[in-house]
Design a protein around this nucleic acid. Structure first.
Length: 284
DNA sequence: GACCAGGCGTCTT
DNA sequence: AAGACGCATGGT
């Protein structure tokens, strides 16, 4: 149906100690993990370590693609290729986006960014925490949330807490997180999810605007957070969260807004713009 | 509509 | 080194 977004099965091969999922030059592990869409990965040795989907991961960018330690080819195919967007033809999307000349510089600076398909509840809570906040601090709060309420994995890392693990807690229980006024929002989100009013299944069955409205019934979820959750946690690539950086760079390079034909992949265009804007602010 | 909330990284002095 | 600033949202 949608010609811009094309899925395929990437080559996956077992190597010493793990697997490599084939990836082209439209994949950068660093840019993907450091672009502000996820908060649980840290640089380690020549790669990244972190936890996703309840599993500790060690990742490296290799010439042939993404190396993942200690996973099977089946897991790579079913879980990790979709998780890292390596089953999606980003070159095709890039070519569509750069048909708009104004987006070319942004796209070129960020074309290795993939939109992750993170777990819904983790994304919901993470982006509630992200509101009015900065990435280093968000990472700290999420770390303490996992440490306090997540399952301890065998290597000492912690899984992201389940909704049930947070359900029924009070704001005093969340004091160790030092998350400020967001404590009550975290509790509200867990309640809505556990009591079945806001679920991934429900969101998936709704059109974009209805899904966004449903998410915004959670206290602490406004339009920006809702768009982030749909983009990073529900694989809705049409979501377009706008923050200060995006607003600034949009005003400068495309005040007329995104062209209509890019709407299905607005989230990827947004990521390119975001990356570009952050690079600019780093330089100055 | 304007303004404050708790906290802290970051930017300015 | 200290102080001001900003950040997304809900409540006043």
């Amino acid at each position: 149906m949608n010609e811009i977004i094309r899925k395929f099965e990437p080559d996956i091969k077992t190597v010493d100690g793990g697997v490599v999922i084939a990836a082209d030059s439209f994949f950068s592990l660093f840019d993907t993990l450091e672009c502000g869409q996820c908060f649980r990965f840290y640089e380690k040795d020549s790669g990244f370590e972190g936890v996703a989907k309840g599993k500790s991961l060690y990742l490296e960018q290799r010439a042939e693609g993404l190396f993942i330690k200690n996973v099977t080819e089946t897991e790579a195919k079913n879980i990790w290729a979709p998780y890292f967007g390596l089953d999606t033809d980003y070159e095709r999307i890039y070519r569509e986006i750069v048909k708009n000349e104004r987006l070319r510089e942004s796209a070129d600076s960020a074309k290795g960014v993939r939109i992750l398909k993170q777990d819904f509840f983790e994304t919901l809570i993470s982006f509630i925490i992200s509101q009015n906040n900065f990435i280093p601090r968000i990472k700290g709060i999420v770390f303490r949330l996992c440490e306090n309420f997540g399952e301890r994995l065998c290597d000492g890392n912690f899984a992201f807490p389940t909704p049930e693990a947070i359900y029924g807690l009070n704001t005093e229980d969340l004091a160790p997180l030092r998350c400020g006024f967001r404590d009550k929002y975290i509790l509200s989100a867990a309640t809505e999810v556990v009591e079945g009013r806001v679920t991934e299944e429900a969101l998936n069955s709704l059109d974009f605007e209805s899904a966004k409205r449903l998410l915004m019934t959670v206290k602490g979820v406004g339009p920006k957070v809702a768009e982030c959750v749909l983009l990073y946690g529900c694989a809705r690539l049409e979501a377009f969260p706008v923050d200060v950086w995006i607003r600034r760079v949009m005003a400068e390079i495309m005040p007329e807004g995104l062209p209509a034909e890019l709407k299905p992949v607005a989230g990827i265009a947004q990521q390119y713009l975001f990356h570009h804007a952050r690079n600019l602010s780093k330089k100055s």
